[in-house]
Design a protein around this nucleic acid. Structure first.
Lengths: 130, 130
DNA sequence: CTTGATGCAAAGGATTTGCACAAAT
DNA sequence: ATTTGTGCAAATCCTTTGCATCAAG
């Protein structure tokens, strides 16, 4: 655990609710003399250690602490207008999704290890603005 | 409609059930003297015309005819072992997902226009091999 | 010392773009 | 002729790597 890795991890802990990209981390920490490659290498290390969970939107990878993305389902919503990404984190809905997973495993005789669900649409703010 | 565009579209019609990448199209057609940029430009045109639907897996875009991906839900499964990508196309399951969509719209006061669901796991073949 | 981690710059893969040329109206 | 589409090569974006250097045991 080097000081750079600590700083990077600290960013995730500080922004528990956010989805951080490598670029955002880099911009926050570059004044402390942290290079892009260190950001990527550290993030990949944390992903391998299963401390972080990665998910891609368009061409960019975002990361969040796995302990806060504690479910076997990752449900994200991206607003087509303001580009905000938010979690859908609703016990009732997660339960329903988990039930469907079981059904899919049975029906298709496959083993599901991970599910990423990506919604595209308009967030509450942008619906009202429009 | 140029001859190149016809050829590219024909590939999608020929492979109705498959998810084609730009590279695969290019490799199939390059002998006919079609360049990479033409493949990309044509595919993007078709996506804008909503003839094709795009979805990304890792760093690669795959495309399929929208008329065959006829639902407002796109459910794909990628085997972690053999890397095969398959559709989950089961009326019962799609219905359940659509119901959840309505619930999510209500609970979060958002508007959902599109949903991509990506499963990762082991396909039937690879389960048996392992 | 020896090992591992860093920073820079250069390389990598997928996709896009600039530009001169070809096709089609 | 004028517009539109093509092919090539160069450029772009995000990410990874090579390599010399730095820090720590």
């Amino acid at each position: 655990m080097t000081s750079q890795r600590k700083e990077i991890l600290a960013e995730f802990i500080k922004n528990k609710e956010e989805h951080l990209s490598a670029e955002k981390i880099y911009n926050t920490l570059k004044c402390g003399g942290i290079g892009f490659s260190t950001v990527y290498r550290s993030i990949n290390l944390f992903v391998n250690l299963e401390i972080l969970k990665e998910f891609k939107v368009d061409d960019t990878s975002y990361y969040e602490l796995k302990m806060y993305a504690k479910k076997p389902l990752h449900i994200h919503f991206k607003c087509e207008r303001c580009k905000t990404i938010m979690d859908i984190d609703d016990k009732e809905i997660i339960l329903k999704y988990l039930k469907i997973n079981n059904l899919i495993e049975k029906n298709n005789k496959i083993q599901v290890n991970d599910v990423d669900i990506m919604f595209h649409g308009l967030c509450n703010n942008c619906i009202n603005k429009a």
